[in-house]
């Protein structure tokens, strides 16, 4: 067993929950009117997984709430309080993995680790001082069985006086506590940066050109083509119109080389069908009014996953808002 594996085994053996949950801040000190970046880290034992906000057959994604100290909460406008309930848009999560279970369920899941970055606004009028924020999270972790778990973590942050500069504050961090906080924030910053780099790249025209991807939507048909790849998959988000048969049509892989003549074709194509009955049943969830055709009005969005000829997996964020739309390289 490697040192890392031993450490991981010890970590999970000592825990009451399967998932190790922790929260950290990327900064030790924040300015009033600025943004505090909270890093939420979920670590799973081998084979266990948690879920993305995908159009999943099973499971559910983790949820969390951020409790602010009273003085801080009093300055938060009512309209933005909802953000503290841990709503993070699907495209802001790291790209998940397509996971097919032994029951042929198709889910978008995370194995090993999930790191989320949740930004909290620091009110402009907040008085300087130490503040503690509590993050309560809940998640469903599954392997052969599923277990609902929860956890809580506290993040302490120093809010600077309006005139105080970050530089002056850094100069104060000579003591042990300051040093420890500094290390924690450094780890958090590294995790945040890695998590952000794992987010799917938005499929704008230039990205499409470089990646060789063409996505089209006509009526209830959606097609996604890639010029050259080993495999291609689409993982719709939970806000997307629903698709029929993601097990059968959500992923295509190139046949092993030499199996037949067609194997030499480098390109791959996904042909997906929006499920109109399901879309109808999901009107409320998708926010689509009774008076309109959900297939016409709903959006198609999710993660396109491409494993290239070099074996490297890349993830892209695809959004096709209208019934007849196309995202294709500029000509």
């Amino acid at each position: 067993m490697t040192t890392r594996a031993k450490q991981a085994a010890a970590l999970f053996a000592a825990s009451k929950t399967k998932v190790q949950f922790e929260a950290l801040a990327t900064q030790t000190a924040v300015r009033p009117g600025g943004t505090l970046e909270l890093v939420l880290r979920f670590r799973m034992p081998a084979k266990w997984h948690i879920y993305w906000r995908g159009f999943n057959d099973t499971g559910l994604p983790p949820t969390w709430t951020v409790s602010l100290p009273k003085a801080w909460a009093a300055l938060v406008p009512e309209a933005s309080k909802g953000k503290l309930a841990g709503a993070l848009e699907p495209e802001l999560w790291p790209a998940p993995t397509r996971y097919v279970s032994s029951a042929d369920t198709v889910d978008a899941a995370y194995f090993d680790e999930l790191v989320l970055v949740h930004s909290v606004a620091v009110p402009a009028g907040l008085a300087a001082g130490e503040y503690a924020l509590t993050i309560d999270a809940g998640w469903l972790v599954c392997d052969d069985a599923c277990i609902p778990e929860d956890g809580s973590a506290e993040v302490r942050v120093h809010v600077l006086a309006a005139e105080e500069s970050a530089k002056e504050r850094e100069g104060e961090q000579g003591g042990d506590a300051g040093h420890a906080r500094g290390r924690a924030s450094e780890v958090a910053a590294q995790l945040a940066s890695r998590s952000i780099s794992l987010r799917p790249v938005v499929l704008g025209p230039q990205v499409q050109e470089a990646a060789g991807i063409v996505a089209r939507r006509v009526g209830s048909e959606v097609s996604i083509e890639v010029r050259s790849a080993r495999s291609l998959a689409f993982l719709p988000s939970d806000a997307s119109l629903p698709f029929a048969d993601l097990l059968g049509t959500g992923e295509v892989k190139r046949e092993a080389v030499g199996s037949d003549a067609g194997a030499s074709e480098p390109g791959l194509k996904l042909s997906l069908q929006i499920d109109a009955d399901l879309a109808n049943g999901m009107r409320a969830q998708l926010g689509i009014a009774e008076s309109v055709d959900p297939v016409q009005q709903g959006k198609v969005e999710g993660v396109v996953q491409v494993v290239g000829e070099d074996g490297v997996r890349k993830s892209y964020w695809l959004s096709l808002p209208a019934a007849a739309s196309e995202v294709a390289p500029a000509r």
Binding site: F55, T105, C146, D275, G281
Partner: peptide, 8 residues
């Protein structure tokens, strides 16, 4: 028709 949810 709705998407069922739960465990596999």
């Amino acid at each position: 028709k709705t998407p069922a949810y739960g465990c596999s």
